[in-house]
C-alpha cells in the first residue's frame, strides 16, 4: 500500500459519501444519473464477489462492504425514497451500448487462460472481475451525458465527480509506483484505468477553470 493507492481509495470513499449526503441533505437526486449508479452497483457486485472466496485484509473487506452498501443506499434513495426528484427525462443514455461490448470484452480478454468450464468458480470470479474493471471504466458516461444534456451541474455534484475521477487517476500513479518498486503490473487494470481517467479530462478542465473559482459548472451553449 503506497500513498497514491491510499489517497485514491480515500478519494473514492469521499466521492460516494458526498453523493449519499447530497441526496440525503437536499432530499433530491436531481442531476444524478441513475443509470451510472446502476452500473456502479453492478461493478461493485461483480468485482467484490471475492469477499466470499479470497480474504485479503480487514481494510480491503471493510472498504468493499462500504462501497457495496453505499451503492445500494444510493439506488434506494434514487429509485425509492426520492424517486420524484429523479431526472428521468435527461437520463437517457442507452446502457446496453456499454454493457454488451464490455461483457464480450470481459469474456474474450481476461487473465484466465484456461478453457471455459461451467461451474469453475475461479474462472467465473475472474471473468466477472475483468467485466467489472471494463464496466467501471465507462460507467460514468451516462452521468457525463446527463450533465452535457442539461448543460450544468450543481457544485456538490461537481465535487462528487472530481473525487470519483481523481480516484482512478491516483491509481494510475499507484500502478507506476508498483511497477517500479514491486515489479508488478496488471495490464487490464492499467488500460481500463487510463480510459476511465481520460473520460474525465474534459470535466477536470471545467472543474479547475470554473468550480474552483467559485462559479457554477455551466457548459458553454
Amino acid at each position: 500500500m503506497n500513498i497514491f493507492r491510499l489517497t485514491g481509495d480515500l478519494s473514492h470513499l469521499l466521492a460516494i459519501i458526498i453523493l449519499v449526503l447530497k441526496i440525503w441533505k437536499t432530499r433530491s437526486c436531481a442531476g444524478i444519473s441513475g443509470k451510472s449508479q446502476i452500473l456502479f452497483a453492478l461493478v461493485y457486485f461483480t468485482r467484490y464477489l471475492d469477499l466470499f472466496t479470497n480474504y485479503i485484509s480487514l481494510y480491503n473487506s471493510f472498504m468493499k462492504i462500504v462501497f457495496i452498501g453505499a451503492s445500494l443506499a444510493t439506488l434506494y434513495l434514487m429509485y425509492m425514497k426520492f424517486k420524484a426528484t429523479y431526472d428521468r427525462n435527461h437520463d437517457t443514455f442507452r446502457i446496453e451500448f456499454l454493457l454488451i461490448p464490455v461483457t464480450l470484452l470481459g469474456l474474450l480478454v481476461n487473465h484466465e487462460f484456461t478453457p471455459l468450464e461451467i461451474g469453475d468458480t475461479v474462472l467465473v470470479v475472474q471473468v466477472l472481475w475483468t467485466f467489472s474493471i471494463y464496466l467501471e471504466s465507462v460507467a460514468i458516461l451516462p452521468q457525463l451525458f446527463l450533465v452535457s444534456k442539461t448543460g450544468e451541474a450543481e457544485t456538490i455534484t461537481s465535487h462528487y465527480l472530481m473525487a470519483l475521477g481523481s480516484y482512478r487517476a491516483l491509481y494510475l500513479i499507484n500502478w507506476i509506483w508498483r511497477y517500479y518498486f514491486e515489479g508488478f503490473y496488471d495490464l487490464i487494470a492499467i488500460v481500463a484505468g487510463i480510459v476511465q481517467t481520460v473520460l474525465y479530462c474534459d470535466f477536470f478542465y471545467l472543474y479547475i477553470t470554473r468550480v474552483i473559482r467559485g462559479r457554477a459548472l455551466r457548459l458553454p451553449a
Partner: peptide, 10 residues
Amino acid sequence: ITTGAAKDEL
C-alpha cells in the same frame, strides 16, 4: 516482473 489481476486493490 509479475503480472496478473491486482486482487488486493479495490
